[in-house]
Design a binder for these strands. Structure first.
Lengths: 346, 346
DNA sequence: ACGCGCCATGACAGCGCTGTCATGGCGGCC
DNA sequence: GGCCGCCATGACAGCGCTGTCATGGCGCGT
């Protein structure tokens, strides 16, 4: 009835509880023969450590917190999966924590979150990972964390992170559109408080520049990382006197909104207008036509970050790591219609 | 530096730790004046209870587990939001737990999951909640849980649950299509091990029957609750010698797949074929045309279940509660094209 | 043969909280 | 006025585990 405890195992194996603890935690300095005896007892009794007791007693609770502030369901699920995969393998627990990255008390909220359950550390995803002032305070509270950042190169700022080169990927997408022959390319920007938005815009502008195409302010439209802003933004672009022949949405959800806007305007994608997204979320595969996008494996990125965090908690030195999203060309992009056969919006 | 403890507060307020504990846990039998003194000390020191210690010491850890086995990102996020909303308000913690509902050791996995962290109880979502044999064992281990079920009425089987009338909602959707004038209505069925699939099929058949339309085996296609099965299933339906004029997907993702299949076949939705989904996930709003569907508020349903669970843990008697998804008509359904003007698949 | 040091193990004291039971004070009742 | 009972509070012993330090045995060097 009552769960088996360390003492039960110790009794059965004829050793002290401490020795069982040593075996469970895989410490050395237990004679192989003793270890065997203990392991047998553990198996016979089907012993499972009580995580609360372990956490209360030890320096930390073998639990990490995954912190996010994101409206994107696919993205969140992918991140959770990555974190869970790492945790399962390394025998850690996971606590999820949606939050408001712009709250003034962010650092204190996270500190309390960590302290209440004696979390071992936090994985901070964008845009929480970009609130530098808050993170400085968090570091001062001695809460270990690993950030996931949108950056072209290793920031080497003494705080461990996994960085994703959004600029480069946005450049690749824009270049793809340019190579198809598009010149007027609309850009639907994502939330301003995501550094990734700026990086992606930079990639877009850099590519235009390298291809000798001046960027036009009227083709860049602000919005958030949500479907409706993609829809509205695309509408505005398509309503221009000279509408773009291609639209690059800052993520797949925005692009899906743009796709819906084009279709609702009676346009055929990709023949009348090309649309590209970013992220390779199921969105981009679950629309018709499927979206050209940049594959960004949030699950793998977060898994990596989680492993780094756990390694760091264990006292290891860990090197930062970079990821490069990869261009995925699907059916939503094609060369622009020749001018002569250009179809007007109905 | 070190987090403030009960003893610190007790010292400051000039009372015993136990009294502080009483105040924190809102137990009565503390003189108002004492309570005030303690509350002031708590505020001054910014005290936060350590959840591990509380959980280790008490009978349970003020933490509930949310158990799911589901590939649907939107659904999972909605459920998590609901559970988090209830937990935040009632000062509980949440642990998430994806699992394989068909694993033979399900009950034991869940027991261990619960025991390791001394969880207060579990919220079991479909289809985990439908593994009756496993649940009997789980109950025998004295793990409290609340199920979320697909059922037309309260099962009154002594185990608390929240039930959702999928049959009724599927009936409403089918009736809606019939009323538009559709007679050949395809049905894309979701995963066999979800009871909801059977219930929705029942609603579909019942409606057909009530409207005097015989159901045809070739119009019902098996699949799982994923986009690709919706796509493939719809393809098969549209390839029939006499294709359906409307397709009812067992959830929005299936319907989105069907929508893509129709569009990829050059058909216009809803003019050439109507498509309806189920769930009202963002999917149904993020496609073009947006999907007619049945609104099922997973967040609210899970929030309700979480509150029931917590009430039950607190020793209360709780009544089961039913939800009725509600028909939401959007642009993906319309009357069938008159026979004369029927358009052939290209 | 003696002593030193190291390795395997154990005893013990918490970690921060709650359950249980004891205590003391005070109002009410006969 | 004395006794009972109840209410507010506190002392204390864990919850199940780990950190620290003590211990005892054994190999090895001289």
């Amino acid at each position: 009835m009552k769960p088996v405890t360390l003492d039960d195992v110790a009794m059965r194996a004829g050793v002290s509880a401490k020795t069982v603890s040593r075996v469970v935690n895989d410490e050395r300095s237990v004679r192989p023969q003793t270890r065997q005896r203990v392991l047998r007892a553990i198996e016979q009794l089907d012993y499972r450590p009580n995580l609360l007791a372990r956490g209360l007693s030890g320096a930390h609770a073998y639990t990490i917190g995954l912190v996010y502030d994101n409206p994107n369901a696919y993205y969140i699920i992918a991140m959770q999966q990555g974190a869970l995969a790492a945790c399962d393998e390394l025998n850690f627990n996971l606590q999820i924590r949606p939050c408001n990255s712009r709250s003034p008390g962010l650092a204190e909220e996270l500190r309390d979150f960590a302290n209440r359950s004696r979390l071992s550390g936090l994985v901070l995803t964008t845009p929480v990972s970009e609130r530098t002032a808050a993170l400085r305070r968090l570091a001062a509270y001695r809460i270990p964390f690993v950030r996931i950042l949108s950056a072209a190169r290793d920031p080497r700022d003494g705080s461990p992170c996994v960085y994703v080169d959004d600029r480069d990927a946005a450049y690749a997408i824009t270049a793809h559109l340019l190579q198809l022959g598009h010149v007027r390319i609309g850009f639907l920007r994502g939330g301003r408080h995501h550094h990734a938005s700026a990086e992606r815009l930079r990639g877009y502008k850099d590519a235009l520049h390298d291809y000798g195409v001046p960027w036009r302010r009227e083709l860049v439209i602000d919005g958030d990382y949500v479907f409706d802003d993609g829809f509205r933004g695309a509408r505005r672009l398509l309503d221009l006197a000279e509408p773009p022949t291609a639209i690059f949405g800052c993520n797949d959800e925005i692009a899906a909104g743009a796709l819906a806007a084009a279709q609702s305007a009676g346009l055929q994608v990709p023949y009348d207008v090309s649309i590209a997204g970013f992220e390779d979320s199921p969105f981009s595969r679950h629309s018709w036509p499927p979206l050209t996008t940049a594959r960004q494996r949030a699950d793998i990125i977060v898994e990596r970050a989680t492993r780094m965090l756990i390694a760091r908690i264990g006292g290891g030195e860990v090197a930062n790591e970079g990821f490069n999203p990869e261009l995925v060309v699907r059916g939503s992009t094609a060369p622009p219609r020749p001018k002569s056969r250009q179809r007007r919006r109905r």
